[in-house]
């Protein structure tokens, strides 16, 4: 699971009002290279919850992203590479996503998060 996916997902258990961002529990992180595409990053940037991305990248051990960011930073090649790395190349292979409100664990196995709810959660 890449951090782009993490940035899109929330816990949708019945009754949970703020299921975002999910806390990351790490068992195994791998880096997977993805082709660098500045246009894709520029398109994605306004849709990203920046704080959640920064915190998620910290929990994966990557501390290069600035806490606050202005859209003008997108002109910097260096920044784009860091953004690219955090968003697309850090990959949670084994672990879990944890609902911030209820503590429910959504397991991540072989890089695939299991977001399906139990019968009593729908």
């Amino acid at each position: 699971m890449r951090l782009l996916t993490h940035n899109m997902l929330s816990s949708n258990i019945k009754g949970v009002t703020n299921g975002f961002p999910l806390r990351i529990e790490i068992e195994k992180v791998v880096e997977k290279q993805v082709e660098f595409n500045p246009d894709f990053l520029k398109n994605m940037f306004p849709k990203i919850e920046w704080k959640a991305l920064v915190n998620a990248s910290h929990s994966m051990g990557y501390v290069e992203l600035p806490e606050e960011v202005e859209p003008s930073r997108l002109d910097s090649e260096d920044f784009l590479h860091k953004f690219h790395h955090a968003l697309l190349e850090l990959h949670l292979e084994e672990g879990a996503l944890v609902c911030p409100e209820t503590g429910r664990r959504f397991p991540v196995s072989k890089g695939i998060p299991n977001m399906l709810l139990h019968e009593d959660e729908v």
Partner: peptide
């Protein structure tokens, strides 16, 4: 081919996307 950016197990009836996420 490049691998998918993401694969996940989710229900189309109750999609797990965060509130406020749109036009992505």
């Amino acid at each position: 081919l490049p691998m998918p950016i993401a694969l996940l197990r989710a229900d189309n009836n109750l999609p797990p996307w965060r509130t406020g996420l749109k036009e992505i």
